[in-house]
C-alpha cells in the first residue's frame, strides 16, 4: 500500500460499516452477558434451595417442639424424643472461640509481615507454602491433631495449665485426662484457619497502591507507622473479610474437629472438656439412627442453624465492610 492509499483509507468515512460481522459480535455479546447472568442467578438459587430443603425437613420438629426450645434445651436423649441442641451449639461456639482467640492476631501480623516486610525473594517461596497449607485436606490436620496435639495436651499443656491457672477458674481445670476436647479441637482449627487468614491479609495488603507507602514514608513515617496507617485506613475491610473467612472455616469444619474433640454431648465448662460441635453431630449421626422418630428432623434443624449462623455472620461482616469502605476506611 502506498502512503497515498493509506491516507485515503484513513479519510474514508464510515469505514466500520464495511465490516459486516457486527450482528454476529452483537449476538455474542448479548449471549455472553445472558449466560453469565443466568449462572449468577443459579448460584443464588442454589443457596435458596439448600435453605428451603433444610427448612422443610426441619419443619416437623420445629412444629412439635419450637425453635427456641430446641436451641435452648440441654437434654439430648433421642430415644426419649428429647432433642436439645444447646450442648452442641455450646460446643461449636467453644471450639471456634478458642480457635479464633489463638489464630486471628498472629495470622494478621503474619500476613502484614509477609506483605510489608519480607523481601520479594522470601515471598516467592513463603507464599506458595502458605497457600499449600490452606489446601491440606482436613483429615490430615485431624490425624496430626491425634498424633501430636492430643499427647501434648494430655501430658504437658494440661497439667501445666491446671496447676497454674486451674485454681483461678474452672475454665482452665484439667477435667478430662484423655486430651481429647475443646482445646485440642481449637488448636487444630486455629492451624487450619491460620494460613487462610494469612493468605487473604497478605493479598489485601499487597493490593494497596504502592504510592500510599511512598506518600507516608516521604512524610517521614517509620515503617511501622506506615504499615499501621495502611492497615487502619486502607486494608481494614479486607482484613475483616479475612477473619470472617477464617471464622466460617472454623465454625463449619467437621472432620478434623470430630477426630479430636471427644464427641461428648454436654456443654463444656473447661477448655479441656470434651465437646460435640454441630457439624460433628450431623456427620456422625445422619443416616445411622434414622429409625428414631424426629431424629432426622433434629439433625436438619442443626444444619439449618449452622447455615443461618455462617450466613448472618457473613452478612454482618459485609455490612461492616461496606460501612468502612464508605467512610474512607475509618471506623
Amino acid at each position: 500500500m502506498t502512503r497515498d492509499e493509506s491516507l485515503t483509507l484513513l479519510t474514508k468515512p464510515h469505514a466500520t460499516t464495511t465490516f459486516n460481522n457486527l450482528p454476529r459480535r452483537r449476538l455474542l455479546d448479548a449471549a455472553g452477558s445472558a449466560l453469565m447472568q443466568l449462572l449468577q442467578w443459579l448460584i443464588m438459587l442454589l443457596l435458596a434451595v439448600v435453605a428451603a430443603t433444610l427448612l422443610v425437613r426441619a419443619l416437623p420438629i420445629i412444629q412439635q417442639v419450637g425453635v427456641f426450645e430446641l436451641l435452648r434445651s440441654e437434654s439430648w436423649h433421642p430415644m426419649a424424643g428429647q432433642f436439645g441442641l444447646a450442648p452442641f451449639i455450646a460446643g461449636s461456639v467453644a471450639v471456634t472461640t478458642v480457635a479464633m482467640a489463638m489464630c486471628v492476631i498472629p495470622a494478621i501480623l503474619c500476613g502484614v509481615y509477609m506483605a510489608e516486610y519480607t523481601s520479594t525473594r522470601t515471598r516467592t517461596w513463603l507464599k506458595p507454602l502458605i497457600d499449600l497449607l490452606v489446601g491440606i485436606p482436613s483429615v490430615v490436620y485431624g490425624l496430626w491433631g491425634i498424633l501430636f496435639v492430643i499427647p501434648l495436651i494430655r501430658n504437658q499443656i494440661g497439667p501445666a495449665v491446671d496447676s497454674t491457672l486451674g485454681w483461678m477458674s474452672p475454665f482452665f481445670r484439667q477435667t478430662n485426662p484423655s486430651g481429647y476436647g475443646v482445646l485440642a479441637a481449637g488448636f487444630v482449627l486455629a492451624l487450619m484457619s491460620f494460613p487462610l487468614i494469612v493468605a487473604v491479609t497478605e493479598e489485601v495488603m499487597r493490593s494497596v497502591p504502592q504510592q500510599m507507602r511512598e506518600s507516608l514514608l516521604a512524610l517521614g513515617a517509620t515503617r511501622w507507622e506506615t504499615t499501621k496507617c495502611i492497615v487502619r485506613h486502607a486494608a481494614l475491610p479486607g482484613v475483616l473479610a479475612a477473619v470472617v473467612l477464617g471464622f466460617s472455616r472454623a465454625f463449619g469444619e467437621t472432620l478434623a474437629v470430630m477426630m479430636v474433640v471427644g464427641n461428648v454431648p454436654r456443654a463444656p465448662t473447661s477448655i479441656f472438656d470434651g465437646a460435640y460441635p454441630l457439624p460433628a453431630l450431623i456427620a456422625n449421626n445422619y443416616s445411622e439412627m434414622m429409625s428414631v422418630p424426629l431424629y432426622d428432623s433434629a439433625l436438619m434443624m442443626a444444619a439449618l442453624f449452622l447455615l443461618v449462623v455462617v450466613l448472618s455472620f457473613n452478612v454482618l461482616a459485609r455490612l461492616v465492610i461496606n460501612r468502612l469502605t464508605n467512610r474512607g476506611g475509618t471506623l
Binding site: 497502591p209 504510592q211 500510599m212 511512598e214 506518600s215 507516608l216 514514608l217 516521604a218 512524610l219 517521614g220 513515617a221 507507622e225 496507617c229 485506613h233 486502607a234 474512607g328 476506611g329 475509618t330
Partner: peptide, 30 residues
C-alpha cells in the same frame, strides 16, 4: 529523619484515604 527533611510532591495526587483535615494532620501527629 532524611525523609522528614526532604518532602516529596508526587506525580499523581495521592490523598491518603482519610479526611481532608487528617491528610494534613497526619505528618504533624507523627
Amino acid at each position: 529523619e532524611v525523609r522528614s527533611r526532604i518532602g516529596l510532591l508526587a506525580q499523581k495526587p495521592f490523598p491518603l484515604p482519610m479526611s481532608i483535615f487528617d491528610n494534613v494532620a497526619y505528618g504533624l501527629r507523627l
